[in-house]
Design a protein around this nucleic acid. Structure first.
Length: 443
RNA sequence: GCCGCUAUCGUCUAGGGGUUAGGACGCCGGAUUCUCAGUCCGGAAACCGGGGUUCGAAUCCCCGUAGCGGUACCA
């Protein structure tokens, strides 16, 4: 599901939750063939992951086809709609003849051939009331007698939407502003049917960094892509809510309950926004760090598809303050589950000079320990730099590379403690041996 | 072409007739001398252009310009 659609869903959901209304999930597709199961499943999957539960639905527009056809019949019978046998070429040449600012006016045909059009007046304006933009005026003169149903009687989008908004009792429509010009048509259908007009709120579109429409190819452009990249649904929701809507006080990290409380469709921004993954990352980090241990473990386990056992819990406890996304957790703690990675660059950079001596000292300090908690390890290693008369980095980096293979890991005391005494000593010994053999040294 | 929407730091935005134009992300610098990250402190960085209205305009109005959307027997 595209993040633009997800944000629209979120705004509708927030508005419903905020006002005690109902959140309807409607799949807007009049064509049964087009709303493939795959697309629908994707939408449902995305909404479930985000936690946007709908009260009713999903509805499909083709579920309402009977009502759509009845509405068309009624408009035909009332003389507001008519059959027009003109082909699209004929319509085009009519427009060439009458000027580009003149909406097409057809002639009712005697036969029951041809598309069904809604008659549009020449005078006056259609005024659409938008919660965000106020009154939007469309001169009737510019609007075609638009097609509401195909020659075979099957309904078209603008008819269908209007009819089922009415049938479903929709009183607030929040959607993308690419629908602004459709709204005048839907309002005309509703008026012709003698139905009430819902409130409309058109939210701006989300664009990519290049200012153009966000491509569906971009991984980050879909909810599933964000999930797979290791973002939390809470952070995505928070970020999306703020992309086009902002509270007066500039608060940026707003948990969902507060979001519901503060959301008002009137405050949605008018101009389009650019999706900025860097800010999402930052926000995701905030949410990652604020989770309690159980939540964190559960989220990580689900993401990695592992058992949330004690080892993983331990790993989580040392990674939590560092990882910005779920995706970053594993590289930080993999050394607890697997042998150290082989990173020649890290090795060359750190395992030089008197690294072997330092490792030997560290080994001896750790070998005597009874307990192996973080405090025990710290008490053993902390005096080393001073005793050896070298910088702390010269002591800790070799240990880090010895146990993890890389120069980047969680805190050294935490890492050593989590790895456990046996494996730590084993890996330090192996590293000393490898240095002694000259392997990995500069030529 | 025609119709419509929009325009504040690079990005998300707050504000809105008289402000040092505020915050957040990112960026740069400093601190926390175990890496990375985090955290804290500091810095650079904006009202699209032109006309009005007004004592005063980034703010209101008009005109440009640009971006976006629509202009289907698509949705």
């Amino acid at each position: 599901m595209h993040i633009g659609g997800a944000r629209t869903a979120l705004y509708n959901w927030l508005a419903a939750r905020n006002s005690g209304g109902t959140f309807l999930l409607r799949i807007e597709d009049t064509d049964r063939e087009r709303s493939t199961q795959e697309n629908v499943d994707q939408i449902l999957e995305a909404l479930e992951w985000l936690g946007l539960d709908f009260d009713e639905g999903p509805f499909f527009q083709h579920d309402y086809e009977t009502q759509h056809r009845a509405a068309v019949e009624k408009l035909l019978a009332d003389g507001i709609a008519y059959r027009d046998s003109a082909t699209s070429e004929e319509v085009r040449s009519w427009k060439d003849e009458h000027g580009a600012d003149r909406g097409y006016r057809g002639t009712p045909s005697e036969s029951d051939e041809g598309a069904i059009r809604l008659r549009v007046e020449d005078e006056g304006d259609e005024v659409v009331h938008d919660l965000i933009r106020g009154e939007i005026r469309f001169p009737n003169r510019n609007l075609d007698d638009f097609v509401i149903a195909r020659a075979d009687g099957s309904p078209l989008y603008n008819l269908a939407v209007a009819v089922d908004d009415h049938e479903m009792g929709v009183d607030l429509v929040i959607r993308g502003d690419d629908h602004i010009s459709n709204t005048q048509k839907q309002v005309k259908v509703l008026e012709a049917l003698g139905a009430g007009i819902p409130d409309y709120a058109h939210a701006p579109l989300i664009h990519g960094a290049d200012g153009r429409k966000l491509s569906k190819r971009e991984n980050a452009a879909s909810v599933q892509g964000l999930r797979d990249a290791g973002y939390l649904p809470e952070a995505v929701l928070n970020y999306l809510a703020l992309l086009g809507w902002g509270p007066e006080d500039d608060e940026t990290v707003i948990p969902l309950p507060e979001l519901i409380d503060r959301f008002d469709p009137k405050d949605i921004r008018k101009s389009s926004a650019v999706f900025d993954e860097k800010k999402l990352r930052w926000m995701n980090g905030r949410y990652m760090r604020s989770m309690d241990a159980d939540e964190y473990l559960e989220a990580v386990a689900r993401y990695l598809d592992r058992e949330p056992d004690e080892r993983l819990a331990l790993a989580c406890s040392i990674a939590q303050e560092k990882a910005q996304t779920l995706d970053e957790v594993w590289p930080l703690v993999a050394f607890l589950f697997e042998p150290p990675v082989d990173d020649p660059r890290a090795w060359r950079k750190v395992m030089k000079g008197d690294a072997a001596t330092v490792l030997g000292e560290a080994r001896d300090a750790l070998a005597d320990l009874e307990g192996f908690g973080v405090e025990d390890v710290e008490a053993a290693l902390d005096p080393l730099p001073e005793r050896l008369g070298i910088g702390a980095g010269k002591v800790y980096q070799p240990i880090r590379v010895a146990i993890s293979g890389t120069t980047v890991s969680p805190g050294i005391f935490e890492s050593v403690s989590a790895l456990g005494k046996d494996r730590t000593l084993e890996r330090i010994d192996a590293a000393i041996g490898r240095i002694g053999s000259g392997e990995g040294q500069e030529p």
